[in-house]
């Protein structure tokens, strides 16, 4: 039954969300744009609790792409947190990175990826990596807890060192079972 849950989030013992938060701090991320996802819930809480981070909840993910462009114009490093379905909302706006050579790191929790229950998630989940790469994004996957920190670290480094969109896809194998409200 655990594979059939509607929303999945990391179990309380998993510390990879905290490792992502530590990497955001290490790389001096000052703006966090997000559309909530259960898989990011713990990371979002950590970011909101950090008063050196400006956290903006978006109405649609493409807003976050534009916000990252503005943040970089003003000297802030930023990141976009979203679910794979939101990637589809971002595609044309990623043009901004291509025009201006703007660093745009994204951390994407996957649905429709591995053992998905909801048919509506499949089309976008299956297309997520392809459409990001079609827009010039460097995409890396993390499917085990051990993969998360090095992959997110690489995603942040490659965005800010080479001036382009980059993404870590956090696979559905990683995201774990429903916690029945215990986070």
């Amino acid at each position: 039954m655990q594979q059939d849950t509607i929303e999945q989030r990391p179990d309380a013992a998993a510390d990879w969300p905290d490792q992502i938060y530590d990497l955001l701090k290490l790389h001096n991320i000052r703006q966090v744009a997000l559309v909530p996802d259960a898989g990011h819930s713990r990371l979002i809480k950590r970011c909101i609790a950090d008063n050196t981070m400006k956290v903006v909840t978006l109405t649609t993910e493409e807003e976050g792409v534009a916000m990252m462009a503005g943040a970089w114009l003003g000297g802030d490093r930023s990141v976009l947190l979203m679910q794979s379905s939101g990637v589809g909302n971002c595609i044309n706006m990623l043009t901004l990175s291509s025009i201006h050579r703007t660093p745009m790191p994204m951390i994407v929790t996957m649905r429709g990826d591995f053992g998905e229950f909801n048919p509506a998630q499949i089309a976008m989940g299956n297309a997520t990596q392809a459409v990001l790469e079609a827009m010039g994004t460097l995409v890396k996957r993390a499917d085990t807890p051990e993969d998360v920190a090095p992959t997110v670290d690489a995603t942040l480094r490659m965005a800010f060192n080479t001036f382009r969109p980059t993404a870590t896809l956090l696979g559905q194998r990683l995201l774990g079972a429903k916690t029945f409200g215990k986070d």
């Binding site: 493409e62 792409v65 534009a66 990252m68 706006m93 025009i99």
Partner: peptide, 22 residues
């Protein structure tokens, strides 16, 4: 000045990122 050549629908949100940074 940052005149945009694309990114239709994103100008206001670019402004937000810039205003938060500065």
């Amino acid at each position: 000045n940052l005149p945009l050549w694309g990114g239709m629908g994103g100008a206001a949100m670019m402004g937000l990122g810039l205003a938060l940074a500065q």
